[in-house]
Design a protein around this nucleic acid. Structure first.
Length: 900
RNA sequence: GGAGCUUUAGCUUAGUGGUAGAGCGUCCGCUUCACACGCGGAAGGUCACUGGUUCGAACCCAGUAAGCUCCACCA
């Protein structure tokens, strides 16, 4: 037996073990194997992204599921890959091109080879490096180079985390095969008549010059103004009607004003006209149900080109559509030179001034409303009329898509965990809008549609000379919705599709999860008549969000997200995984605190040292059978506890309750195994002639061999290291059988006594109720529940509750009719109001405590600045504690005030 | 406007009707030969609030408050 180090050092273990796993090809899934299949496809991260805490949570859960299934004897496939992330990646590269000197070498080389933009002699670009100057082909070359340079990063990081993906099957959404699948899906939907091209209002991002989907628009509260202006009625000179608007800069695009047909104030105006001030024109007054007569003045200016609702009104009343904005949201209206060419926000002020001059502005009110912001461009989106490609979900599956997609989830063919997300899913499906699948982005799968004059063809390659391809590409999600099957070849698909589980955040339930379900149903990847054979996955586990100590989302911009690689370096991948899993309850947000990861690391060290202790006692018996040996009561007890834990773990795994699994194992290892059992085992080891020594050793070996496997899904590295070090198996722990309960009945006084104790406690709890009923009967209380102790049960009372307790209770009953706890303590009901003096006293006590806390932290901080010794992380911790204390003081002071 | 989630010790939280638990932090004591990433001990809880159901509520029901999230609307 080799000596184990005093403290477990993951950095000496993890990389070596991972390399060994890869070398032995343990993660590769064999599609021809007869073992039951278990498969997961990774939610593909952005190809150029880096690992975040969200990824760590997400992928740890997937690895836990995969490793658990592998131990259970399944043939497991965890299919990894990355997403080209169209707009996001293109935006990132365009941004990087602004600083050519900081580009990665390989990208820079491509840039320097582009003669039309790169000045070789001057060693700098000839012009601003925008996508228009660079051009489609060249920009794509640059993005490919960028992707190749950055693309491996996140994959390497997943390996550091210990993910057991089948790297031979790694896919990218721009791979040739995958590209074909995406294009063919489009052509298929087009041929079936589900896809159409149409002029529709889309969310236009003026920064990135593309349409974006509703899901990518973030409503953001904005402080603005509500302008009330007045238009003169043409037919009634001198009569004005007042109109409220937040966007006077679009009034050149007004082609009507609208009132509610039931609004009595304006009924005499139906069919008449008003003067639009600039450019001056007569526009009709129309009556439309959409108008809310409570809002503003009850009159709405109708700008069909620049508002979704107005566009619909325009359609209903056959109004002309006048576009007065350029693609980058500048005013395009040569008839009004004062505004022409102005930015939309400057034009807003200017047009208000112009109305003022014409004496048509009644008032300006401060007003807060929600404005849709582009997720990528960080600017307000502009509703804009443009030619786009749409998918009509409702037509899919011969018009049955919506009910069938609902049925798959509500009928539990696909199970959501937690199931409350079913409601969100069905609400969205029931109110579904057509999907705008075209994007004005170069990076992505180009729309396979070709034009020649009025002719249109939908096919993979050009029909011939003179045909031009649609310049747009497809929404990223219109490629990733095929991820669950288009990543697999036929053989793989036969064995592993539908996939077993999907692990993802609820934020992409519409963007991705729902669409993957629909893609499975529509495209029949299982080649089966039965729809339920084509579901993309059987279980969906929705993770929570990771928040910081203050409860804020973790995000790059806030800088509150720790780098997972730093955490791995500090605590080990196992520590990070275990710490995170222990605090990640199903579907709830996680308030992240590094302390929790520290606990994970400490736990690994505890396990390591338990093994070290065992190693000191002599050789390990890999096939130890404690049941055939003489055992101490403690050994019998821990063996019984082990069975309990295995049952608990199996139960929790079935319900996807990973924190319950991790928690149960933590308690078992630390409290039962280390604190109780190993401490008592020391007696056996101190006495060389102890008759139970053999049994105790065997018990330790037996428990360890099982515990290591139970822990392996969470802490793969340390469990593998000890497993091989101790020789529990010739091979990796990964394919060892999942532990089952021993099934042995232990005839042992300790176990019996423990069980007896538990039974007594339980019985006394249950009996308490019945006992109390009996007591109340004696006191002539009116009982609603008609249960009483039988004679034999009553006879048992003294033995179960204890004669002494019974006496106390009887005595108490003489004095006052009160409720009684099982232990015989008297419980006095609170009478009347809270004692204000006592409450004040309590608050003052708490306040003093909080102030003391604050002082203590202040002192520490002061000392740390003076001595300049404390590490930065400690200082940060003290600052957090200080903030906590301050918050507490504010809260308490307020409570005290309200009392006085 | 609609829906969902959360509220337990200073902090992070466990707890599916029966004596309120853990880790961290704090305070006290220990370098005891597995582990100071540790061990032993202490202090610290009107379980957000109000009502209801119940012999009994942190837990079930109703309402209130605060915080978070999603959907819809937003002239």
């Amino acid at each position: 037996m080799t000596d184990l180090a005093k403290a477990y050092d993951p950095s000496l273990v993890e990389d070596r073990i991972y390399a060994d796993w890869l070398a032995k090809n343990y993660f590769h899934a064999d599609a021809n194997n007869s073992k039951p299949a278990y498969s997961i496809v990774i939610p593909p991260p952005n190809v150029t992204g880096v690992l975040t805490m969200g990824h760590v949570l997400n992928n740890t859960i997937q690895d836990v599921l995969i490793r658990h299934a592998r131990l259970q004897g399944c043939e497991t496939l965890w299919l990894p890959g990355t997403d080209h992330a169209g707009l996001a990646t293109q935006t990132a590269v365009e941004k990087a091109l602004r600083k050519p000197d900081e580009l990665p070498k390989t990208v820079r080389e491509v840039l320097e080879s582009l003669d039309h933009v790169w000045d070789k002699d001057a060693g700098k670009p000839k012009m601003a490096l925008t996508r228009y100057n660079i051009g489609r082909e060249a920009l794509l070359k640059l993005i490919w180079a960028w992707t190749k340079d950055r693309g491996g990063i996140i994959i390497q990081q997943l390996k550091k985390l210990g993910c057991s993906c089948d790297w031979e099957r790694e896919r990218f959404t721009m791979d040739t095969d995958y590209h074909k699948a995406v294009i063919n899906a489009f052509i298929d939907l087009y041929n079936k008549g589900y896809i159409y091209r149409g002029k529709r209002m889309v969310n236009w991002c003026p920064a990135s010059h593309t349409a974006i989907s509703d899901e990518e628009v973030i409503p953001t509260p904005q402080k603005g103004k509500l302008y009330t202006m007045r238009y003169e009625v043409v037919e009634l000179p001198g009569t004005f009607i007042e109109i409220a608007t937040t966007r006077p800069e679009t009034l050149m695009g007004d082609t009507a004003v609208a009132v509610n047909p039931n609004d009595e104030r304006y009924q005499h105006l139906h069919g008449k006209h008003v003067w639009r001030p600039f450019p001056k024109a007569q526009i009709p007054i129309v009556a439309d149900e959409h108008v809310d007569f409570e809002f503003g003045t009850g009159v709405l200016k109708v700008t069909p080109a620049h508002d979704k609702a107005d566009f619909e009104i325009g359609k209903r009343h056959n109004l002309p559509v006048i576009d007065v904005l350029t693609p980058d949201a500048k005013i395009n209206c040569p008839d009004v030179p004062e505004l022409h060419g102005l930015d939309r926000f400057d034009a807003r002020k200017k047009s208000a001034e112009m109305l003022q001059e014409l004496n048509l502005l009644v008032k300006e009110d401060a007003y807060e409303n929600n404005v849709g912001f582009s997720e990528r461009g960080q600017v307000p989106i502009e509703p804009r009329l443009s030619e786009q490609w749409f998918l009509d979900y409702r037509k899919m599956l011969n018009g049955k898509m919506i009910p069938e997609a609902l049925n798959m989830v509500l009928g539990k063919h696909i199970k959501f965990h937690p199931d409350r997300w079913e409601k969100v899913y069905s609400h969205w499906l029931e109110n579904i809008q057509d999907w705008c699948i075209s994007r004005q982005v170069y990076w992505g799968h180009r729309i396979p549609v070709w034009y020649k004059g009025a002719e249109v063809a939908c096919q993979e390659s050009s029909p011939g000379k003179g045909w031009e391809q649609d310049p747009d590409s497809m929404d990223t999600w219109a490629s990733s919705w095929l991820w669950a099957y288009a990543t697999m070849d036929d053989t793989t698909r036969k064995k592993f599709y539908p996939t077993s589980a999907l692990v993802t955040g609820p934020d992409i339930i519409f963007l991705w999860v729902a669409r993957m379900i629909m893609a499975g149903l529509e495209f029949n990847p299982a080649n089966s008549e039965k729809l339920e054979d084509n579901i993309a996955f059987k279980d969906v586990y929705f993770t929570g969000l990771i928040r910081d100590r203050q409860g804020r989302k973790m995000s790059k911009s806030l800088g509150n997200s720790p780098d997972p690689l730093d955490l791995i370096a500090k605590y080990g991948a196992d520590g990070l995984r275990f710490g995170l899993m222990r605090i990640a309850p199903q579907g709830l947000d996680i308030r992240f605190d590094e302390k929790q990861i520290e606990e994970g690391r400490n736990f690994c060290n505890k396990l390591w040292n338990a093994c070290r202790f065992r190693a000191m006692q002599g050789d390990i018996d890999a096939h130890a059978d404690p049941f055939s040996k003489q055992l101490t009561p403690y050994a019998a007890h821990i063996l019984a506890r082990l069975d309990e834990v295995i049952l608990k773990v199996d139960e929790a795994f079935k319900k996807f309750e990973f924190s319950a699994v991790a928690g149960a194992l933590y308690e078992f290892v630390w409290d039962d195994f280390c604190s109780r059992f190993l401490e008592t085992a020391k007696a056996d080891f101190a006495d060389a002639n102890s008759p139970t020594r053999e049994g105790t050793l065997a018990t330790i070996d037996y428990v360890l061999s099982k515990v290591l496997r139970l822990l392996h899904p969470f802490t793969p590295f340390i469990s593998e290291e000890i497993w091989t070090e101790f020789g529990f198996g010739k091979n990796t722990i990964q394919f060892a059988p999942w532990p089952a309960v021993s099934g042995k009945t232990l005839d042992n006084s300790a176990v019996e006594q423990a069980q007896h104790t538990y039974v007594l406690i339980d019985a006394s709890r249950r009996l308490r109720g019945e006992f109390q009923i009996a007591l109340n009967k004696k006191l002539n209380f009116k009982l609603k529940r008609d249960t009483a102790l039988s004679t034999s049960e009553s006879a048992l009372l003294p033995s179960l509750i204890g004669a002494e307790t019974l006496t106390i209770i009887s005595q108490a009953l003489e004095k006052t009719p009160v409720a009684i706890t099982p232990l015989g303590d008297l419980y006095m009901p609170l009478e009347g109001l809270i004692d204000l003096d006592k409450e004040r006293e309590r608050l003052e006590k708490e306040l003093a405590k909080a102030q003391a806390n604050l002082e203590r932290e202040n002192k520490k901080l002061q000392n740390s600045t003076m001595l300049a010794k404390a590490p930065a992380e400690k200082v940060a911790e003290w600052q957090a504690l200080k903030a906590d204390a301050e918050a507490q003081i504010t809260k308490l002071s307020e409570q005290l005030k309200s009392l006085k």
